[in-house]
């Protein structure tokens, strides 16, 4: 049944998603008639990159990371400092920030690789706070609590100027690339190995998987995209300060993943959208909106323990869309 459908309409879901991202959403935002809506959408895009990358490490691989916001901060500061100090354009600072963050992530992660479960979570919390304290106090280098102002926006001279719309499209393109890369890593034999590592690392090791290598690779990939998200954040907002990258932010990212559904890429995006859009929608009730966000978080954990779009339904969707092995006439495996 679904095999027939996916043969006649190949890869329907990605086309729909891309259409929504690049056509429908900009039109709707444009119709709302304010730059503010674009800025909210840009924030959602940055957090979607963050949640998808955090989901890769926490949801798919099962390493509860409580320091993700700090790596996001490393990326943001790398981009901000290289853009304001050296005058590099955004298409250099984005990959540079990603690489620096991945490198720092690997260096910091190496000593924690033998820790499991809550001990790993606590170690990432400590590392995250160490990064935050460093950003806050290394005044000569990061300007400390004053933050870094006047970070150039996303623009290519002669082609387009920095604006809310250009920011939106830049974030949308990077988010689409991120989702594609993480999707290919997650829904593959490699992703199956990661899920095996999550379910039982000792068993996975017995089966011949090099779990330390897998963990380091996952950490590197996840930190790379967190760094890119940070770079986008500093270019789109133009001002960053250490308080954007505190423990609270890590917790917010974790909450987005859990509300959306641990281990599910669409879930991570849904979670980011919900928890960021909700406070905006609830702006009329002003002071109470954070309480509502907390309640939504609580109720969704209570009544939807697998998340709004859980891993099982996400995998089901992916298999229907991409799973050659699920087609009767296919001769290739699902990879």
């Amino acid at each position: 049944m679904s095999g027939e459908l996916s043969k006649s309409f190949p890869r329907l879901a990605p086309l729909l998603a891309l259409g929504a991202l690049f056509v429908v959403a900009p039109l709707v935002l444009y119709a709302s008639g304010s730059g503010y809506a674009f800025r909210v959408a840009t924030t959602i895009g940055v957090f979607a990159i963050l949640t998808v990358s955090a989901n890769f490490i926490t949801g798919t691989t099962g390493l509860l990371s409580l320091g993700h916001a700090a790596f996001y901060g490393v990326g943001a500061y790398t981009a901000a400092l290289s853009a304001t100090g050296f005058g590099w354009p955004f298409w250099v600072t984005l990959p540079f920030a990603g690489l620096v963050t991945a490198l720092i992530g690997i260096l910091l992660a190496l000593p924690t690789m033998r820790l499991v479960s809550i001990h790993f979570a606590v170690a990432t919390l400590g590392l995250g706070e160490i990064i935050h304290v460093t950003l806050l106090n290394w005044v000569d280098f990061t300007r400390g609590p004053m933050g870094i102002p006047a970070i150039p926006g996303i623009a290519i001279p002669g082609l387009f100027k920095a604006s809310d719309v250009s920011n939106y499209f830049a974030v949308a393109v990077i988010a689409a690339i991120t989702v594609f890369v993480i999707h290919r890593l997650t829904h593959s034999y490699y992703g199956n190995a990661l899920r095996a590592l999550r379910e039982d690392d000792q068993c996975a090791e017995t089966m011949g998987l090099d779990i330390v290598r897998l963990k380091i690779e996952v950490f590197a990939v996840s930190c790379f995209f967190a760094g890119v998200a940070g770079a986008l954040w500093s270019h789109t907002t133009g001002y960053i300060s250490p308080n954007d990258f505190r423990f609270n932010e890590s917790i917010l990212i974790l909450a987005m993943i859990v509300v959306g559904g641990l281990g599910s890429i669409p879930g991570a995006i849904v979670g980011a959208t919900l928890l960021l859009a909700l406070p905006e929608v609830l702006r009329p009730i002003g002071d109470y909106r954070m309480i509502v966000v907390g309640s939504v978080m609580f109720l969704s954990i209570l009544f939807l323990p697998r998340g709004i779009f859980g891993e099982v339904s996400a995998l089901d969707l992916m298999r229907r869309q991409f799973g050659a092995a699920w087609r009767r006439d296919g001769r290739v495996g699902w990879r």
């Binding site: 909450a255 002071d287 309640s295 978080m297 609580f298 954990i301 209570l302």
Partner: peptide, 16 residues
């Protein structure tokens, strides 16, 4: 993780 996050949600609600 569920109780971790539910206690976290409660802490947000209490603080706010």
């Amino acid at each position: 993780e569920a109780t971790l996050l539910s206690s976290l949600a409660m802490s947000i609600i209490a603080r706010e």
